[in-house]
């Protein structure tokens, strides 16, 4: 779950990075990397590319942490940087084919979720089958708990466009994923 002041925490870590240099990168990595990789994977559809994008962005942040310190919303800015880098990598490698298998993903299933592994992986599979512009809205909306206004800022689109993409994506996902009532447990 995204804490309400996540953006401020990112700013605080960026400030430390500015003061202490690369030695302080570990904190920012621990705070953001998993979520950035997750977001980037929905764009690149390949975890290796996503990790390359995240690495490139974090190295840029090390070079000039001030861009995050002075950003209005550092977390949104970081997401936008990762998105742009992911798109660059995607364009460079021309990997437009949708990967149906999850073999390239580094998945971790909590022990108490093992019985639902297939269900959880099905979500990823279907997310990757969506067009990028729809899957990224779903990720930002559901996993990053952003408003459509915030999503619009990250994706540089009007808020109504973000909302309609979300609607289309959710309708598709609902039809693809079996939607019988399940006891859903949160994985933190």
């Amino acid at each position: 779950m995204s804490p309400p002041n996540h953006s401020e925490t990112v700013r605080e870590f960026s400030q430390r990075l500015r003061e202490s240099g690369a030695a302080a990168l570990g904190g920012l990595y621990d705070l953001t990397a998993a979520r950035l990789v997750r977001f980037s994977t929905t764009i690149t559809r390949n975890q290796q590319d996503a990790e390359d994008a995240v690495a490139a962005v974090l190295l840029k942040v090390v070079e000039s942490p001030s861009i995050l310190v002075h950003a209005t919303s550092p977390w949104s800015y970081l997401l936008r940087m990762v998105r742009n880098e992911s798109l660059v990598i995607l364009r460079k490698r021309k990997r437009w084919a949708i990967v149906q298998s999850l073999m390239d993903l580094w998945t971790v299933i909590p022990v108490d979720e093992l019985d639902r592994e297939e269900l959880l992986q099905a979500v990823w599979r279907e997310l990757r089958a969506l067009p990028t512009e729809q899957s990224e809205v779903v990720v930002l909306k559901i996993w990053e708990e952003m408003t459509f206004q915030q999503i619009a800022e990250v994706l540089e689109i009007p808020p109504p466009t973000a909302a309609s993409r979300y609607r289309y994506a959710m309708t598709k996902l609902a039809s693809k994923l079996s939607v019988e009532p399940l006891e859903v447990r949160h994985v933190d």
């Binding site: 990595y29 990397a33 990789v37 580094w106 979720e113 939607v179 859903v184 994985v187």
Partner: peptide, 23 residues
């Protein structure tokens, strides 16, 4: 329900082991 299911799948994809060290 779909949104709940998607939310539950959020943390199954993790950065690979060596990404932190590499960066």
């Amino acid at each position: 329900r779909t949104a709940e299911r998607i939310r539950a799948a959020s943390s199954i994809v993790q950065p690979s082991e060596f990404l932190r060290t590499k960066i």
